[in-house]
Design a protein around this nucleic acid. Structure first.
Lengths: 191, 191
DNA sequence: GCTCGACATGTCAAGCGTTACATGTCAAGA
DNA sequence: TCTTGACATGTAACGCTTGACATGTCGAGC
């Protein structure tokens, strides 16, 4: 149900066509949300009917540009400040961990090591992206970079966790004898 | 598409009815996956038709118990070792961060502080759960506890990130002047 | 002049997931 | 005895998402 709000957020930066919005999902937002044109085009029409957007006249090649309305901005704001985000309901990679006991220990270790490698690769990807982007002083870039940083931190923790978990299995432990979890120090609130 | 495999994984521990499996999703798996009985019952019938399960005869109150077959175990194994988990396509809370620039800085800070508090609360919940569970030496408990630990680490990082991000906004920074990111040391591979 | 690829929009079928509706059994306790 | 709540299963409508199919325009380069 967040597609509408993702579109409102993108259109808050300025008018855009369905095609351009589709590209935004493939590029800047790819790590955070996804949507195909087949969903975006009908959705934009619904949002226009709702009064959150208005469509400009057709440009060349049938291009249709949408502009966010005050109602649209109000809805975006309402969503941000009033609707509590729900804690992730689904996490496929954690689900898999629950069932690793059905494999041989060596296979489970191999699985976790591949996960660690994938997380490392993702860290590399995000780091490269961060270096590549010509960040400016806009609010949008500011928030984009903060979000990228969050993704980076989480991927790093996932990599470390997977290596630790693999080591636990390798050394023949069980749920009652886990060792050396790098629990972070009891979080100090800043200020 | 993982519901089938989640059910296979649960049934790998032993026979169960749709009702019991529904409870498992509400309890042990709640932080990782969700499914309602209205989806589970039809899915079990499809999986039995597929040959992954067999249904026992009806018990009292119409209870139907399903048992995993060798084909079912093979499919679970195939999913675990051959199918690469896809990197999370959707993350609503990160999506929201992208659009925080549309709010006043003070509101954005308040938003992030609420997120930090929510993450802290979740850490507490998981910590309490970890202390409450009577972990045994089974493989299932071992993997369950490893997964719980992963959730804990991620929630801790999220809390720290949100506090750091709020501080960045409070001190009037932008994408070109971020400070003090607690980047973890370049990951040392264990052994 | 033609061809190719990016630009640009659209529909449709099928699968996944949630909510609401619907029904019936059994055991415990008042 | 009756009521209540946990046990237990099911269907139907609706919304979200994907993948496949479909169509057409415009500019660059051969």
């Amino acid at each position: 149900m967040s597609l509408k709000h993702a579109l409102l957020g993108l259109l808050a930066e300025g008018p855009a066509s369905g095609y351009e919005l589709t590209k935004r999902f493939e590029l800047s937002l790819a790590n955070v949300w996804s949507a195909k044109h087949s969903q975006i085009y009908p959705e934009l029409r619904k949002m226009a009917a709702e009064g959150w957007l208005v469509a400009g006249e057709e440009g060349s090649r049938g291009r249709k540009e949408y502009v966010i309305t005050d109602d649209g901005r109000a809805e975006l704001r309402r969503w941000l400040v009033e609707v509590r985000p729900e804690r992730a309901g689904r996490n496929e990679s954690m689900l898999r961990v629950f069932f690793l006991w059905t494999l041989d220990p060596a296979e489970a270790v191999a699985y976790l090591e591949r996960e660690a490698a994938a997380a490392h690769a993702y860290v590399e990807r995000l780091t490269a992206l961060d270096a590549l982007v010509a960040w400016d002083e806009s609010g949008a870039d500011f928030m984009g970079r903060l979000a990228l940083e969050e993704g980076l931190l989480i991927a790093q923790v996932q990599a470390e966790w997977a290596e630790w978990a693999a080591e636990q299995i390798r050394s023949g432990r069980d749920a009652t004898t886990l060792t050396g979890r790098r629990r972070r120090p009891p979080t100090k609130r800043q200020r």
